Amino acid sequence: MILDVNHVIDGYDSFDVYQIDSNTIELYNPFIDTSYFLHGYQRATFDYDFVFYDNIHYFLQEYEAWEKVYTSEYGALNEFDNENYLQFLSGGNDSTFRSSQDVNVYNPNNIYWDYTGVYGVGNVHGNDYLKTLTLDYDFFDNEFFELSVINDEVIELYHPNSGTVYEFEGVGYIQYLRESDTTGKVTKHLDKPKVRKQKTPKKDNPRENTRS
């Protein structure tokens, strides 16, 4: 079986389809000699929330900036109280963040970023729906948070060292789709293309190209 795909971002591709077992198929691209293995799940038992949290760093990258909209009245004063905007950059090492102490900036393009550093998202043992977020500030040590999602625009950061809770709202949603005219020709590309890194290591492909 041959599967032809015309993707709005990646364009045209063609695959040979092979059934591996009762819930696994292989999509083989003969033009680049690459196979992709897809495991099927039942809708009723598939854990969409787990997949979302397992890829939450991509969610953080889908806004131009995150604006602090809430700081709890409880909690000790700390250096992070002064940070009002965060940005998580895609591409590169996929772990770069920026922070700003600007206030009331209505256009994220006008934010002055005071600091650029490295961030990391980690797992919480026994809880698949809670993550940790570490921001590496060289000048006053790392900032560690428990990261949870309130909705598709707001995240909550709990700062254990001070007991403070912060909420950040995403501003400047990044639309990754390309625009095209009525003939399907691409008329506009975004300056920031969608970047996703492969998690699994690549292996030599034993599949042989059977197309002439």
Rank of each mutant, 00 (worst) to 15 (best):
E167C: 07
Y115N: 04
E153C: 03
N151W: 08
E169H: 08
F144C: 06
G170R: 11
L130E: 15
Y119G: 03
V171P: 07
T134V: 13
G122Y: 08
D141I: 00
G122L: 09
S162P: 05
T134F: 01
Y166F: 12
Y137A: 01
N151V: 03
E167T: 04
E153P: 00
E146Y: 15
G122W: 10
K131M: 04
E143I: 02
E167M: 08
V124T: 07
D114V: 05
G163K: 09
N123R: 14
T134G: 00
N161C: 05
D141K: 07
P160D: 03
D114Q: 07
P160T: 02
D138N: 08
Y119C: 03
N142D: 15
E167Y: 11
D152Y: 14
P160S: 03
N127G: 03
P160F: 09
S148H: 02
E143W: 10
L157R: 03
E153S: 14
L147R: 10
T164N: 02
V121S: 13
Y119H: 02
I150A: 14
V154A: 08
G172Y: 07
E153N: 12
G163R: 11
G120P: 00
F168N: 05
G117N: 00
E156C: 10
V154W: 08
F140M: 10
V118P: 00
L130P: 00
T116K: 11
L157S: 04
K131P: 01
G126A: 11
N123W: 12
L157I: 03
V165T: 15
V118E: 07
E146A: 10
Y119I: 01
L157A: 05
T132M: 09
F168H: 06
G172R: 09
I150S: 14
D136E: 08
E156P: 09
V165H: 12
N142E: 12
K131C: 05
L157D: 03
F139N: 14
G122M: 11
H125Q: 15
G117T: 02
D114E: 10
G172N: 05
V149Y: 10
H125C: 09
L130F: 02
N123G: 07
P160I: 04
F139P: 01
Y115Q: 01
V154G: 10
V118A: 03
E143M: 07
N161T: 12
V121F: 11
T164H: 03
G163N: 08
L147V: 05
H159W: 12
T132G: 12
E169P: 04
H125A: 14
F144T: 12
L157E: 05
V171L: 13
Y166G: 03
Y119A: 00
G126S: 08
D138Q: 08
E167P: 02
G117L: 00
N127M: 07
L147D: 10
N151T: 01
L130H: 02
S148Q: 09
F145Q: 07
E156Y: 13
H125Y: 14
D114Y: 10
G163D: 13
V171K: 15
N123P: 04
L157F: 06
L135P: 00
F139Y: 15
E156S: 14
F139I: 11
I150R: 15
V149T: 13
D141W: 01
S148G: 09
N127P: 07
E167V: 01
E169C: 05
D138H: 03
S148M: 06
E146G: 10
L133Y: 04
I155G: 02
T132H: 06
D152M: 14
G172E: 11
D141R: 07
D128C: 05
N151D: 15
H125P: 05
